[in-house]
Design a binder for these strands. Structure first.
Lengths: 208, 208
DNA sequence: CGATCAACTGGACTCGTGGTACAGTAGGTC
DNA sequence: GACCTACTGTACCACGAGTCCAGTTGATCG
């Protein structure tokens, strides 16, 4: 009965991580106090240190949680794109459309990326956390690069293209789009960038 | 003789701002202590508060300095692009090439954008600073949008394009490219994204 | 029924940091 | 000789992060 017994701990831990994530996205890691997290969750400081050995441990747990969530969402979106169209290019284009739609319907008023927040404060963290961050980006690169390779084989572009940069462009536009969206308080910026990315992909592999 | 006399103050202030900028890009604003800044510059705490009334005043001054520098660099790059080619599209494409080259030759090992750093810590700042940040993005949008409007008039694209998003894409790729470059420790990522942006612009207005 | 363990509570303590206050001073300027 | 700029020096306070450790509660297991 591991599922039902003693599960209160995992739930409290999850609530701490969720509170920490929204606070870090709003104020940064250093400005996020343990006191505010325990106040939000309703436990004491000692309770916090029962779950995390120190603040660095919290940071690492936040990243692991974030990366896992990120991976799951992306897997789901592009798997559905593939299901809707057998062709690698058109399946990818459908996936990008779904992706843009999802980004436009995010519930948060000011969505953000934890990895981006951490990368502008990376001197606060140890090597382990920075490596987790790099792994996350490489996962995006690999994921998109594999698709582009398959697509480029079936639809050879007429001129040389930097497929790696094209794969990175997805993550680049997401990170940049989140930043611009936050700065201007405009949640349409990010999905529109993804739509442009989709246009770009199509124009490279399907010239008019 | 305002230029030569009493100029030591402005110089110290500038050194404080420069030290603050590199510290903030490495650790974030909250984790940047006044003590480390005065140690780096070689003055006392009282000296710091002679130049800035409090930390918020420092933040505002940092943003103003950053935006001004940003504006000057961009003005210079694209003015040179225009000088090298009269045509609005080709002048812009030359400017983008110069821009990519400049971004590839940045002296810092881990360049970053102060505005991006601030936007992931915006709850630390007052409305005034957030507005400065938004103005900075809008300046990029306006700058690129004006060019794209002129180009679209001379080279009408065959299908509808979201010119605003295309203008924002420049800043989006710079912000995102800086983040990916930092995460992977790869300074080539950003210039390659700008090259792709250039390819995209060309393919929209000059279909093969 | 008693032992065990997860999930905490409570309290006391240290240290760094932001920020204030204020008095003093070196050196160039008018 | 008065004045101003650009500081130094010292003392002080409040707050919050983070550490440590001892104790407690309530469910579970043999």
């Amino acid at each position: 009965m591991l599922e039902t017994t003693h599960r209160k701990g995992a739930e409290t831990r999850e609530r701490l991580l969720a509170a920490a994530e929204s606070a870090v996205l709003a104020k940064g890691f250093a400005a996020t106090s343990i006191d505010e997290l325990i106040a939000a969750v309703g436990i004491t400081k000692s309770g916090f240190f029962y779950h995390f050995k120190d603040k660095a441990d919290l940071a690492k747990s936040m990243m692991l949680r974030y990366l896992e969530h990120d991976r799951a969402v992306l897997d789901d979106i592009f798997r559905r794109g593939d299901e809707l169209n057998e062709d690698p290019l058109h399946g990818f284009l459908v996936g990008l459309k779904l992706f843009a739609e999802m980004l436009g319907n995010l519930p948060e008023a000011h969505p953000g990326c934890l990895a981006a927040s951490f990368c502008y404060q990376d001197q606060l963290f140890n090597r382990e956390i920075r490596e987790l961050n790099a792994e996350g980006v490489l996962a995006w690169r690999t994921r998109f690069r594999e698709r582009l390779d398959v697509i480029a084989f079936r639809y050879p572009p007429r001129s040389e293209v930097d497929l790696e940069a094209m794969a990175d462009m997805a993550a680049t536009l997401v990170e940049g789009g989140l930043i611009l969206g936050r700065m201007l308080g405009d949640v349409t910026i990010l999905p529109r960038q993804i739509v442009l990315y989709r246009d770009f992909i199509r124009s490279v592999f399907l010239p008019a």
